[in-house]
Design a binder for these strands. Structure first.
Length: 391
RNA sequence: GGCGAGGUAGCUCAGUUGGUUAGAGCACAGGACUCAUAAGCCUGGGGUCGGCGGUUCGAAUCCGCCCCUCGCUACCA
């Protein structure tokens, strides 16, 4: 803590505003609450209200989602009270310099971990330089205030750079209810992953849960989501196309000499949307992102149906090649767009298509044709097994 | 109590500054096809847009009142 110089002096505080007349018990735990008085150092949070408000105003997306931002701004506008940051009643905690009775405890010590873990106060340290200031803190909505008010105030006081963004995410509910032992509706993520698969769970959570809001895991919806979007749509699209390539194109992605309007329409629709997709990603609007991307998979299945490569292959093999090239290009692009959401599955697809790792970035999508047309496709097992009803 | 968000098809939601028969996905019911995980494609049924009243030629969209749901309302992280 030597790197941060706060001006602090010990004063006596009372932990509760009202004297307890009767024995009180905690609403949450039911245990009895005792009246305590002790000396404490205070962080002068009260003098940072205006500077924080200015920071929120100057940095529009510092707190996301905006509904949460409103709560925080509302809270700060009411005026902040100084914050007790030390205790004398126990010894674990960070010793206060020059006063051995006190240890630093509660938020000041906790939040500082973000930079002490990066070797602060050595601000020339490589790790610190690389990771601070952070691009984003993604934290639960229940600890937003501490990250959006206390932490920036501490950093401002220490004249250190602030993280670029604090995002308060919602909670995952089980069948619309908060998970609790007494209700018996706890969902064990490890069990779900074992049964449904890790990519499948990731996909479901990102798609069905708007990151800023609470979302619900319903096993029925999870099943539907896996079967429809992943197995029947994206997974089966890959399967039907690769199988067609194997049977009709010597298992190599053909070159296209001339693309038809319908081919370009399919490809351009995706490519023209890349800036918007990047924007959605940058604002953590992941569910909108994923819904947009999966719609390309729907479009692709329709395109494949309408183009009927199986019926043009004898009459017009050139045309068939253009169709197969187009659909492969599209599968590649969709796979890249989904790569951060379902990395294991999409990497299998990209591997099958012999796409080099350096060609798997979103920036590569607009550059046409990075296929090795002389190399055979690798075999691809079923990507997503369908979930059957068994309960 | 105060401040804020929201109530739209069975479910999850989208609906730009008010404008023609209110949309999507899932679920449900039919149909044609076959390259594919009996997958994909096409068509259809289904909504008094929380309630009442008002402004307007016209309101899911604006105004008022009411009902309901949710979030925040400081020193446990």
């Amino acid at each position: 803590m030597d790197g941060i110089q706060f001006q602090m002096k010990p004063i006596t505080i009372k932990m509760k505003l009202k004297k307890l007349v009767e024995k009180k018990i905690s609403k949450v735990s039911g245990s009895s609450v005792d009246w305590v008085e002790e000396d404490s150092y205070f962080f002068k949070l009260s003098s940072w209200s205006e500077k924080l408000l200015k920071h929120y105003k100057d940095n529009k997306d510092f707190i996301l989602p905006s509904s949460r931002k409103n709560e925080v701004v509302n809270f700060v506008e009411k005026g902040l009270k100084d914050l007790s940051v030390s205790r004398t009643s126990f010894s674990w905690g960070i010793p206060v310099p020059k006063n051995k009775k006190h240890v630093i405890y509660v938020w000041l010590d906790a939040l500082t971990n973000y930079i002490s873990a990066l070797n602060f106060p050595d601000t020339n340290n490589k790790t610190y330089k690389k990771f601070w200031p952070a691009n984003i803190h993604i934290i639960g909505k229940d600890i937003l205030r501490f990250h959006a008010i206390y932490w920036p105030a501490f950093l401002l006081a220490a004249k250190l750079p602030l993280p670029a963004r604090v995002f308060g995410h919602g909670w995952i509910l089980s069948e619309d209810k908060k998970m609790s032992k007494s209700l018996g509706n706890i969902l064990d993520p490890i069990e779900i992953i074992k049964r449904y698969g890790i990519d499948q769970l990731r996909y479901y959570l990102v798609k069905e849960v708007s990151l800023g809001n609470d979302g619900s895991i319903s096993l029925e919806n999870l099943k539907n989501c896996i079967n429809n979007d992943l197995a029947n749509n994206y997974g089966n699209l890959c399967q039907r196309v690769f199988s067609f390539v194997k049977k009709n194109c010597s298992n190599k992605i053909p070159k296209a000499n001339k693309l038809a309007d319908s081919d370009n329409k399919l490809l351009d629709h995706l490519k023209n949307n890349i800036p918007r997709l990047i924007e959605l990603m940058n604002k953590q609007e992941l569910n909108e992102y994923i819904k947009t991307v999966v719609s390309y998979s729907f479009d692709s299945n329709k395109y494949f149906n309408d183009s009927e490569p199986w019926s043009v292959k004898k009459k017009d093999p050139e045309r068939m090649n253009a169709i197969i090239f187009t659909i492969c290009e599209q599968i590649k692009n969709i796979s890249i767009l989904l790569n951060s959401i379902i990395p294991i599955s999409t990497n299998k697809v990209l591997e099958t298509m012999n796409i080099k790792k350096e060609n798997r970035s979103i920036n590569q999508i607009t550059s046409l044709d990075c296929f090795d047309h002389d190399k055979e496709l690798k075999d691809l097992d079923i990507l997503f097994n369908k979930i059957e009803d068994d309960n």
